[in-house]
């Protein structure tokens, strides 16, 4: 697996998110605790709400449009809602956020 550096963890607010633009669409990179990051598609399967703008709590994010809540570990919607967001592998190395290259390369899109 190859990794691509997308930035430093301090550029993502605690309990917040930043956006990564790729050819296959926008990926949201979430930061929960001091040093814990997750990545998933930015688009809510319900009505396409931008998940990077949602409130991050525990290891979940709430969509800002209609309050669907997703578990960032599995991508599954929590509670009564039925749906799933694609998650991407992401890791931290010396404060740098590394995203699985296949998520952003053109090849994977093809």
């Amino acid at each position: 697996m190859s990794w691509v550096d997308i930035g430093h963890i301090d550029e993502v607010p605690v309990r917040g998110a930043r956006l990564v633009k790729t050819h296959i669409g926008c990926i949201a990179v979430f930061r929960t605790a001091e040093a814990e990051v997750f990545a998933a598609t930015n688009s809510c399967p319900h009505k396409g709400g931008p998940l990077s703008e949602g409130i991050v709590h525990g290891q979940s994010v709430t969509c800002p449009l209609h309050n669907w809540v997703f578990d960032l570990n599995t991508g599954e919607a929590k509670g009564a809602d039925d749906g799933r967001i694609t998650t991407y592998t992401v890791r931290l190395e010396d404060g740098r956020i590394l995203l699985d290259d296949s998520a952003v390369s053109r090849r994977s899109a093809a």
């Binding site: 930043r18 956006l19 990564v20 633009k21 050819h23 926008c26 990179v29």
Partner: peptide
Amino acid sequence: QTYAPIADFTLEA
């Protein structure tokens, strides 16, 4: 800067 993407791979490509 927080209003912009943290990384943009569409530009790079």
